[in-house]
Amino acid sequence: MGQGDNVLEEKTEKDKTLSILLLRGPYVSEYAEIASKLALTARKKGYKVNMFLYLDGVWLQHIKGFKDFSNPGDWLKRAVRKGVTVRACERCSSARDLTPDDTIKGIEQSGLYSFVDMLAESDRVLTFIG
């Protein structure tokens, strides 16, 4: 069990959806971790949660390995595992040579319209940019 695994023990599904748009990469700021922690906490509370990685936010999908220091990718992996739907902008990923086989499993690279679909079904939307 790693960080965040203990936060989803009791959950009653709620009929509301939160979508999170992450525009900044890991380490340059705390936003990648905050976004993932918020997503995980909202899932714990039973909300449907979407995350879309956009612009430099797509770098987060690339933080796959173990680290003996702060690991924003670990939070994202846990969010994926606990049922947060995570998509990464295909064009932004391609621009940064982030291929699907070199990213966290369970994250689909897709076009911007998939985020528009997320918006269409959302009750609240948060953007993380600095």
């Binding site: 939160l18 906490t41 909202a42 509370k45 609240r124 939307v125 948060l126």
Partner: peptide, 18 residues
């Protein structure tokens, strides 16, 4: 803070700006 923030965003506030 994260639990409180989720509650505020989803149940208390009608609009949220970041």
């Amino acid at each position: 803070p994260y639990e409180a923030l989720v509650d505020l965003i989803m149940e208390e506030w009608d609009r949220v700006i970041m």
